[in-house]
Design a protein around this nucleic acid. Structure first.
Lengths: 200, 200
DNA sequence: GGAAAAGTCAAACATATGTTCTAAAAAAGT
DNA sequence: ACTTTTTTAGAACATATGTTTGACTTTTCC
């Protein structure tokens, strides 16, 4: 998708806000007044452009007939939803193939795009109350503090473990005596586990 | 609410359908043409009436500014949300005072009114991966099968336990050797635990 | 630097659209 | 039957709104 100019972006934003507030579309002059265009013909020009690019529609000769294209009107990531993108090992690492299976209801705050969910495989985190088939909600971040539960990439495979930082060493600890710690220097942290959803 | 005339009902229906299809409101003449009114003033008359009765709104001097009143377009219970109504013991029973603290995102299916959430107190269900401060999602039902996790009312206080039915006996089993089973005959089952949400 | 393209403005314009007014028709109440 | 209220129509009206045109400015490109 081509880049939008600053003004075009403001026009789209304004139309969306206006629709949201009033329930019907703004007039050309209302748009102009709010994005700094003093002539309706200038607005017309920009709207024609936006229409060509598929961002919106409006019928000639109809007043206040602007509608945003689905792509634009849609609440991009459904509110309070987090995408479930695959599996993550809590025992032997399993390949984390990334494709959205479904959306999990979870309040992800003001930046939902930083969140995703993974289904847990294996029993290495039993001691932390994380069971097989649980869904862990993860916030993308490259680092974490000692003691936090993280999702880490280890040789192309994802695992959930407790992060341990001590004496300059980094370890990924399972919460189950049957499993062995993993050397943290060999892996990259994908994010921190901020939530868990279980469905019986 | 006063009864609507046949024509008024048709006008409301038409506006709703038009909004649904076009994303913006119809003009007076479009309304008239579709409900059998030949003069815009007739439409104006009926719309004024409908506005007085609170069915819709529109601004004077604005074209195509009709909006249906909330009552007409509202979605009643917040979608995918379950009310958090209090605490439930997983150790010593705690009084389950019922007042809605907040709404927890959870896909409760077609009958969300049968679901509620409780915050877990105590550690009696550690073995089942249910930790203190976890939120259990409960579906109201008076009975449950052997092995299911239930919320039960025991002397005016709620607890989460695993239901055991054997040899005609009914027990509520903790999933922690430090706690004692409860006699199931002395309590009433509030519902079955169908989900769990944890926030770190 | 000059040409081409894109963006903007101002003014005049055409018309879609709500408004007003008066009157006729229909319905309701007496 | 008569009055009153409600509903509708038609025409003229005022204006909000999209459209067109031409010129001017800014940006982009070679």
């Amino acid at each position: 998708m081509k880049n939008l100019s600053d003004r075009q972006q403001r026009i789209l934003d304004f139309i969306r806000a206006y629709l949201d507030e009033n329930g019907y579309p703004p007039s050309f002059r209302e748009i102009g007044g709010n994005v700094g265009l003093k002539s309706p013909s200038s607005v017309d020009h920009q709207l024609k452009r936006l229409r060509e690019m598929g961002y919106l529609q409006y019928e000639e000769g109809h007043f206040r007939s602007i509608t945003l294209t689905d792509q634009e009107r849609e609440v991009l990531p459904p509110q309070g939803m987090v995408p479930l993108v695959g599996n993550v090992a809590a025992g032997a690492p399993i390949l984390a193939e990334e494709h959205v299976e479904e959306y999990i209801p979870f309040d992800a705050g003001p930046h939902p795009e930083d969140y995703f969910a993974l289904r847990v495989r294996g029993e290495s985190m039993l001691g932390a109350g994380i069971l097989p088939d649980d869904l862990v909600i993860v916030r993308r971040q490259p680092e974490a503090y000692n003691g936090e539960i993280v999702v880490a990439l280890f040789e192309d495979e994802a695992t959930v473990k407790t992060l341990s930082r001590k004496n300059g060493e980094v370890w990924l600890l399972p919460e189950n005596p049957d499993y062995e710690p993993i050397d943290g220097r060999a892996c990259r942290i994908l994010g921190k586990v901020v939530g868990l959803v279980r469905r019986y």
